[in-house]
Design a protein around this nucleic acid. Structure first.
Lengths: 236, 236
DNA sequence: ACCTGAACACCGTTCAAGT
DNA sequence: ACCTGAACACCGTTCAAGT
């Protein structure tokens, strides 16, 4: 019986799970995994390497340094934003708010990415799409070019700051009860200040400590920013 | 000749520069020094201890941990803000903008403090004064209580985010030339995008990359926020 | 009571040596 | 060309021992 032609010449050699070669793609995958599991501070070159069953030095063949890895994480989060509603110039304010909500959603879905995003200028394909959409909405609102351009800076800065603040707070592994207790303590602390020196702080201790969840505060923020931008529109 | 009465009993003992005892105050002084010299990332317990000619463990008798030290640095920066102009209700918008400028000035004077400030709830004496002043201005503008309270959150968040972004960028030890080169490269990059897919990005490449210094962008931001807040005023 | 040295469990990055 | 072990110069925090 002759050997079947598809038999390997040296059958003894086991498949030996030759590790899939490292690629940027796989490195970012692993980093996202660590990010989700341990937050931004958990993402070290060593941990990412460990996730890939190799040593930290191996990563440097594909990624210049930690900062570049951070940038790649931001691009991943950017790619997760979905803006499917066609631009409707008559609803530019509402659509701009929706865009900011979607930005926050994507950041929250990847806790820690906000920290990486804060100093970064996002220039990937998806980031440019988001920028183009922002500009379209702002020009629909009759903003002058320079105002629209600076708004493109202001909007992600605000959203990123909110997301980053949330991750800083949640990094201190507090339970919801801990947070509630902290907020209650805070309210009491403010209410007990000397009313002659801090009358409004005392009077508004309640409102000052409400909406801790963040959603209401964020809605307030995007409303203020949108209204402020609308006030800059060219009246023609 | 009798000994003068003020001669020490055992004159052999030299003054031996008995180190001034550690205090929170001295630790924060040292940390501010390191902060100014090396930025936020330079502020390690070890470096601060070294500045005080002791070991890192010694600090833990006075400061719970690094996070508490960060908080103390924020309070220092808060204490450097000066608001001497009396509140004038008719000029609340202008005075609110001036307050934000002063916040940014104090943060810039202590590069790195912004990073420490971003998740912190500032509750020191000086921070409460700033909060009281913000509330006074906002109520002068007829904002509802809840809007004023959330604005007290929004305003420092924005200023801190701007300051933090600046320190992240300047941390990468770039010279002004490097920055200019980067901005020029960025403008070219944007201008060269496919105009059919990113028409506004291409058309506004100039405005998008102008005002890199930050001051103009910051003025834009505080104008938008102030105008947006004004739009929420109760009309009575 | 306050301070300290030494240790523990971590970092990012580099580099010579291996395949 | 790609990967790796080992090393370098750092971290924050703890703790037993000293004064």
């Amino acid at each position: 019986m002759s050997q079947s032609p598809w038999q390997p010449i040296s059958p003894a050699k086991p498949v030996r799970e030759r590790k899939a070669p490292l690629t940027r793609e796989r490195i970012v995958d692993a980093a996202m995994e660590v990010l989700r599991k341990e937050g931004y501070d958990g993402v070290s070159m060593r941990k990412v390497a460990q996730e890939l069953k190799t040593g930290p030095a191996s990563l440097y063949a594909h990624v210049a340094n930690k900062r570049e890895l951070d940038q790649l994480l931001v691009e991943r989060a950017n790619a997760q934003m979905v803006f499917d509603e066609p631009v409707d110039p008559t609803r530019w304010q509402e659509q701009l708010k929706a865009l900011m909500r979607e930005m926050l959603r994507a950041m929250r879905a990847n806790p820690g990415v906000a920290r990486a995003a804060i100093g970064a200028v996002p220039l990937g394909e998806r980031a440019l799409q988001t920028t183009e959409r922002m500009l379209t909405l702002l020009k629909a609102g009759n903003l002058p070019d320079q105002a629209a351009a600076w708004a493109v800076d202001l909007i992600p800065l605000y959203v990123t700051a909110v997301a980053f603040e949330e991750t800083v707070q949640s990094a201190s592994d507090w339970t919801p009860q801990d947070v509630e207790e902290f907020v209650n303590g805070l309210r009491t602390f403010l209410a007990e200040q000397p009313a002659d020196r801090f009358p409004l702080v005392v009077a508004l201790a309640g409102p000052l400590t409400s909406g801790a969840s963040g959603d209401e505060r964020f809605e307030f923020g995007i409303t203020v920013i949108t209204a402020g931008l609308a006030a800059l529109a060219d009246r023609t």
